[in-house]
């Protein structure tokens, strides 16, 4: 039954990747920019929730506040760093994104040192499911439910509201959308706000699941979430979710199979997934091949 346990672990990890991947995919869909700082926004979210929580605020107040604050950070980053470069070359925008990512990592490293901090644990207060001989923590179930719920909510928002419609229009053709009277800047800000809020959600789930946060915690999950987004088909919301879960499961199963001491190689397997996807189906599992128009 090791397989079953690893599957649950994979789903839990995958849910976190999925939430981060949703933000990646939204931002990429709208501004066609790999927001390298997205993984680091997750780190910002984790630190903010830790500090707001340990400052004595009740949980149900501290966490939403942290999510809002992270979301504002994301909007601020877009406003200060990405907006001036909207019409610049793609390379400049990418380098700026790298710069922001480095800035966040190193600023937090200097402010809070690189030693990991303990995240409060809530799992003692939560029930544990027992199936046969396996114990499944309620946290794992909660993480998966949260991720799926947020994805559904987001899909409903994008497909069911006027704002969502505007978002889809901007991602299709920014100029045409502008000519139709859509405030493109506001839509882009909104996208960053939602993406960053999802990253903060992911951060909180990460914190409660693994109980340890550090300034570089966003880097690797950031890459993996992007790979997840590509795997599912970049720009597609359910694709990001599917990619995230698949990647999480692949990672935890490889970790289980690898001999002790080589578990780090699971990262290499994830990397292999990226290469295979790019080789055989660059548009992703759920994506359709589209012809490039000039």
């Amino acid at each position: 039954m090791l397989f079953f346990v690893q599957l649950i672990n994979g789903l839990q990890l995958g849910a976190i990747y999925a939430l981060v991947a949703l933000g990646y995919t939204m931002v990429y869909g709208i501004v066609k920019l790999i927001n390298f700082a997205h993984g680091d926004l997750m780190m910002v979210g984790a630190y903010l929730s830790l500090f707001l929580y340990s400052s004595g605020l009740p949980l149900y107040f501290a966490l939403p506040l942290a999510i809002v604050a992270t979301s504002l950070t994301g909007v601020l980053i877009e406003r200060v760093a990405y907006r001036p470069l909207r019409n610049a070359s793609r390379l400049s925008a990418l380098i700026t994104a790298i710069g922001i990512s480095l800035l966040l990592q190193n600023a937090f490293m200097i402010l809070f040192s690189s030693t990991p901090r303990r995240f409060p644990s809530v799992s003692e207060q939560l029930p544990v499911f027992v199936i046969g001989t396996n114990r499944i923590s309620f946290m794992a179930v909660l993480t998966v439910l949260f991720a799926v719920g947020l994805m559904l909510l987001l899909t409903a928002f994008v497909h069911g509201t006027r704002m969502g419609k505007a978002m889809r229009a901007v991602s299709e053709d920014m100029r045409a959308a502008q000519l139709m009277g859509i405030n493109v800047n506001r839509i882009i800000s909104l996208t960053f706000a939602i993406g960053s809020a999802l990253a903060a959600f992911a951060a909180i789930l990460y914190g409660f699941s693994f109980q340890q946060i550090d300034p570089y915690m966003g880097a690797m999950p950031g890459i993996k979430a992007f790979i997840a987004a590509v795997l599912g088909g970049i720009g597609i919301l359910p694709g990001a979710m599917l990619g995230g879960f698949l990647l999480g499961i692949i990672e935890s199963l490889t970790k289980a199979v690898m001999p002790a001491g080589y578990t780090q190689l699971a990262d290499a397997v994830v990397f292999l997934v990226l290469i295979l996807v790019l080789l055989f189906k660059p548009s992703g599992l759920l994506g359709q091949t589209t012809r490039e128009k000039v």
């Binding site: 470069l85 400049s92 925008a93 380098i95 700026t96 710069g99 922001i100 990512s101 480095l102 800035l103």
Partner: peptide, 11 residues
């Protein structure tokens, strides 16, 4: 930290 700021400002 300086490098990151340098990159952003240069860009």
């Amino acid at each position: 930290l300086v490098y990151s700021v340098l990159l952003i400002i240069l860009m």
